[in-house]
Design a protein around this nucleic acid. Structure first.
Lengths: 202, 202
DNA sequence: AGAATTTGCGAGCTATGACTCGCATTGTCT
DNA sequence: AGACAATGCGAGTCATAGCTCGCAAATTCT
């Protein structure tokens, strides 16, 4: 039932957009009544929040799996897998992802749309910490934040706003972004340099 | 009058949020009546769109000015000025910028919220073209897109979501992002290499 | 089977907010 | 000053959508 409602919500959101997605319409598409909907979700916000949470779980699962698989390989491989997985994650349901990004207001419970990024941050930070010595960057938190934000933004841009470009050149895109990250984390000619101490956070 | 209404719209948006920003409330704050509001704007969407346009003009003016000033200097200086100007642009009215990003649905006329990025793209592309020879990247369109998207995303993240971090370390942030871009555009050890021919766009 | 409980229903209540329209006020021209 | 225009007004209209509540159907318990 909950699943049915979430599926219906996703369909209505992608087909009609956020403001045409009334609870009545969602219930109708789900083949249930509004009353039933409100037995499982206290309000519309909670319904959409649950859908966001489900979608984020699906995306995060891909990223976590990719990082775990590449966890033992070198830094370049890890970053490449991060980018690849992020692309795949955006392709899970890119239409829905676009609606979340462009139309769903990030307030109240819905503010946690970016929770995905926070969890990715923690995952990534763990892997970078293990390879601390290979990285010539002062502050690991700042570096992690920069990497995660960059990958997310570029992937989003290319999957959501330039899908044609990506379709034929997925590997080229991955190469490019990986190079961007590696050039930042490991500047050529600075390999093995001891990281300085100043911190961006404090 | 138009200015007064736009100012009021900005105030209500930042103080109350998008969905509490009714046309009646905006008119009240502006010290005029709803009727007058609708003599200058056909509907609410147009009103908000005009405010977005004004805000984008202000931001773009800073970026354009910075690039023009640094236009004759070397690539590193140009990229550094781009980052600096983007930070300043986000600080013009960061509260309002946050509302646009998080709460205003990007549909219809409002879709042009990202028009800023498109114009920055064109500006930036011009400057990179002039320095084509210094850049060891295949496709200039793709490289420009990556640079502009990256700067925008990182600046947004640090200005909007981590303002404390930025406050004390503005220059560190600018250094870091500049290094990220330069490492991508001009990988150390590859200076002066003729750019390959394959293109990400086609 | 009958009772009790849970789950599902959907017409309708209510609040809200975008927008209108006839009137008032201000400004301009002769 | 008087007439005409342009600008400003704001109570009211109307449509919408979130949500409720009393009833019905289905399921479980005795």
């Amino acid at each position: 039932m909950v699943e049915t409602l979430l599926d219906a919500t996703a369909r209505v959101l992608t087909r009609e957009g956020y403001d045409r997605a009334s609870t009545n319409r969602i219930a109708a598409v789900a083949g249930v009544s509004v009353g039933s909907l409100y037995q499982y979700f206290p309000n519309k916000e909670a319904l959409v929040a649950a859908l966001v949470a489900r979608h984020n779980r699906e995306m995060l699962a891909l990223i976590r799996a990719a990082l775990e698989e590449a966890g033992t390989r070198d830094l370049d491989a890890v970053m490449r897998e991060l980018v690849k997985a992020t692309v795949d994650a955006h392709l899970v349901d890119s239409a829905l992802h676009r609606i979340f990004a462009e139309q769903v207001p990030r307030m109240g419970q819905l503010a946690k749309i970016e929770a995905l990024q926070r969890e990715t941050f923690l995952l990534m930070r763990g892997y970078l910490e293990k390879r601390r010595s290979e990285i010539s960057v002062r502050d690991l938190d700042a570096a992690t934040s920069i990497c995660v934000t960059t990958v997310e933004a570029l992937t989003h841009e290319f999957v959501i706003n330039e899908p044609d470009t990506l379709a034929g050149d997925r590997d080229r895109f991955i190469d490019e972004v990986t190079r961007l990250l590696m050039g930042y984390l490991v500047p050529a000619g600075a390999k093995g340099v001891a990281p300085p101490r100043r911190s961006l956070k404090g």
